[in-house]
Design a protein around this nucleic acid. Sequence first.
DNA 1: ATGCCGGGCGAAGCCCGA
Length: 260
Amino acid sequence: MKIATFNVNSIKARVETVLTWFKQATPDVACLQEIKCETNAFPALEFEALGYHCAILGQKSYNGVALISKHKIEDVQNGLPGDNADDQARYIEGVVSTKKGAVRVASIYAPNGNPVDSDKYPYKLKWMDRLIAHTKKLLTYEEMFVLGGDYNIIPTVDDVYDAKAWENDALFKLDTRRKLRELVNLGLTDAFRACNATPHLYSFWDYQAGAWQKNNGIRIDHLLLSPQAADRLKTCKIDKHVRAWEKPSDHVPVWCELKL
DNA sequence: ATGCCGGGCGAAGCCCGA
């Protein structure tokens, strides 16, 4: 089973690019982020025409996440628990069942957090605390799950082109990285790092300043696996070539293959 | 270079992202 995460940076602006990738990559499940449209404005018909089911949590203008699956999506949970006042569409979770087993999959768009002296940074850290609390609950089920998404966190110095330039950024500050470690240390596996030791492989390149041409990237899109899913992990790759397409997102797809 | 692109909204120019 191939499970992918892809921050599309507006599904309306990117629908042809994203569909092209779906036809080539044929993921079983894809976690999309930054769809930037309301739930009922998502182009579900185009994905259904390719044989997919859609579970969508959108909002006007910003954020928005979706699960796209070849198999039916059940037990869908809209939103990250822990703060009823939070109306930002950043989390959707569902269960994908096959004859060979069921996998719980979440599509995550964690907050950016910049600038760090604004209320956006504490919101980011608190959001991660909520994700950690929710993950503790998911782990008690002792099932396969994959938390895929744009975490807006650079895990280590090996995941950024210039660590010094990013040391005070909300994506790389020590307090930020501690939150990701706290999450992973619950017992999760960073699928990409489990399969690839090579440093300086990235999932995001800014549109500006020739970042792509200079390979000034960062790795912030992650697939975090429960122990039961990690036991079945075969491979994990970054579809870097997609960044060179016409009208690309600034992120590229990251995907893993599980034995089932 | 805390906005150089690129998208949303909405119809010009500001807000936002990483």
